[in-house]
């Protein structure tokens, strides 16, 4: 899992059928990379979130037909380093 900050949303009229009903967010992870993740929690821009990666997580959180492996699984209130 990666910690990141939501930078914004992404949308498109032409998309894989599995995305319908899901919101896509751009997340800048703490290691600097940018990922697009499906949001199941209604996270907003500026929110600190946890992005889980993998098909198992996707199957459990969203379903087996969603075409992504990156899922926002938590909105982080606070963390300590």
């Amino acid at each position: 899992m990666l910690l990141g900050v939501v930078e914004g949303a992404v949308w498109g009229a032409r998309q894989a059928s599995g995305f319908s009903g899901h919101k896509l967010l751009r997340v800048r992870t703490t290691n600097g990379t940018l990922v697009a993740a499906v949001d199941g929690l209604s996270a907003g821009v500026g929110d600190r979130v946890l992005v889980a990666h993998g098909s198992r997580v996707r199957d459990l959180a969203l379903g087996e037909t969603v075409p992504t492996k990156d899922v926002i699984v938590a909105i982080v209130d606070d963390f300590q380093t």
């Binding site: 992404v10 498109g12 894989a16 059928s17 599995g18 896509l24 697009a36 098909s55 996707r58 199957d59 087996e64 037909t65 969603v66 075409p67 992504t68 492996k69 990156d70």
Partner: peptide
């Protein structure tokens, strides 16, 4: 947006 791995296969043929 580009999906990878099983996400990519779900684009072509949704389902497990």
């Amino acid at each position: 947006l580009v999906s990878f791995g099983s996400g990519a296969r779900n684009v072509l043929a949704p389902g497990p």
